[in-house]
């Protein structure tokens, strides 16, 4: 299933609905890179609340998406990482160091708004 990408004022929100295969992840990457340009968005939120497993490929792809979005002139926030997933990721050494993360969608939007208010387009 394709991940639905919603436009919300200056941001686009990719809300993952089910576990994704590697192909679907790559599809998400391409879709986001395209939609950020199409909507002239300033921020991207990727909601991973439903994922109860994140393997190294998923984490690597998310990181690649974030880097790519940055090159397209927008910021990425990953929201909704579950406690178990966070713990497993840290154990595997997958810590998404330079990527902004937030608790949930609401927090993610607040986070982007703050960055917008500061007039900053770079990662802190």
């Amino acid at each position: 299933m394709r991940v639905p990408i919603l436009k919300q004022s200056q941001y686009v929100i990719a809300s993952i609905q089910s576990a994704l295969s590697d192909e679907e992840l790559l599809q998400l990457r391409d879709d986001l890179a395209r939609d950020v340009g199409k909507h002239r968005s300033r921020g991207v939120i990727i909601d991973v609340t439903v994922l109860d497993v994140m393997d190294s490929f998923a984490v690597r792809t998310l990181r690649a998406i974030a880097h790519m979005i940055r090159l397209r002139g927008a910021e990425t926030v990953i929201v909704g990482i579950q406690p178990e997933v966070a713990f497993a990721m840290v154990q595997l050494g997958l810590t998404l160091e330079d990527i902004t993360t937030a608790l949930d969608l609401e927090e993610g939007l607040a986070c982007l708004n703050r960055q917008g208010a500061a007039g900053a387009r770079h990662v802190q």
Partner: peptide, 8 residues
Amino acid sequence: DASRLMGA
């Protein structure tokens, strides 16, 4: 690190 992934 894990807390940061949860946005804290």
